[in-house]
Computed example of a mutant assay.
Amino acid sequence: MTDRSDVKKLVKRHWNGRAETFDDEAHHGIHGEDQRERWLSVLDRWTGEAPQRVLDVGCGTGVISLLLAGLGHDVTGVDVAPAMLEQARDKAHRAGLSVEFQRGDAEVLAVRDDAVDLVTARHLLWTLPDPETALREWQRVAGPGGRILLIEGFWDHPEPWDEYEEVHGDLPLYDGRPPGELREVLEKAGLRDVEHEPLDDPVLWGREPRHEYYAIAGTVPR
């Protein structure tokens, strides 16, 4: 498959189908106060003093969006899958948190230049047919001096599954990358002062990590 619009349709269908049960898995949702507090600690270290204007791209069910809002940031979540956004809005309402959720394409955001201080994304780059375009787009909306913060990993699954059986060959970063390789991708895209931190604490994932997880961030040059 080479038509990117077809690739995106199948990716959207995959995540729409997983929305209702996505948070059930220990390493996806937040299950308990210890896990919540540990994630808040990680995000607080990487985001800095609140309030900041944050765009959470590929927000899914809003896990990171709601944590960031809980830290006092002004958060907007964007996702391509309507069913994921429904879950996110419901969770925000139940938590009493004010987070705006919008449907959108991570590679072509309906957001003005320099609109936010920080762009975040968790486990998103591997799902994109054009991650380089996405990284340029995120820098555009963050603007000079803005930050890009990614929660990423390297999964190295033996076989693709569901819709990914058909499209994984069209996703340049499918299965993620080790931090050193992703650092090179971010620097090639223009980010500066790129640094990363392992996220191997079992409390973060509700179990012993089965893959290599990490936070990685860089600054948009002025």
Rank of each mutant, 00 (worst) to 15 (best):
T2L: 14
T2P: 04
S5V: 14
V7E: 11
K8Q: 13
L10C: 12
N16Q: 08
G17L: 06
G17F: 03
A19H: 11
A19G: 11
A19N: 04
D24A: 15
H27P: 03
H28Y: 11
E33P: 02
E37Y: 06
W39V: 01
L40E: 10
D44F: 02
D44G: 12
T47H: 02
E49R: 06
E49P: 07
E49L: 03
L55K: 00
C59H: 07
G60K: 09
L66G: 04
L68K: 04
G70Q: 08
G72Y: 11
H73I: 09
V75A: 07
V75I: 10
G77A: 06
V78E: 01
M84C: 02
Q87H: 05
R89D: 08
A95W: 02
A95L: 08
R103S: 12
G104D: 03
G104S: 10
D105R: 05
A106F: 01
V108N: 15
A110C: 10
V111W: 05
D113W: 14
D113S: 14
L118V: 11
T120V: 00
A134D: 05
R136C: 14
G143S: 00
P144L: 07
G145F: 08
F154G: 09
D156R: 15
E165R: 11
E166R: 12
H168C: 14
H168F: 15
L171F: 10
L173Y: 12
Y174C: 04
G176W: 05
R177G: 04
G180T: 14
E181G: 12
E181Q: 15
R183H: 10
E184S: 15
E187P: 06
A189S: 06
G190I: 02
L191M: 02
D193I: 12
E197P: 12
L199Q: 00
D201Y: 09
R210M: 12
E212A: 13
Y214V: 14
A215F: 05
P221R: 08
P221Q: 04
R222F: 09
R222E: 15
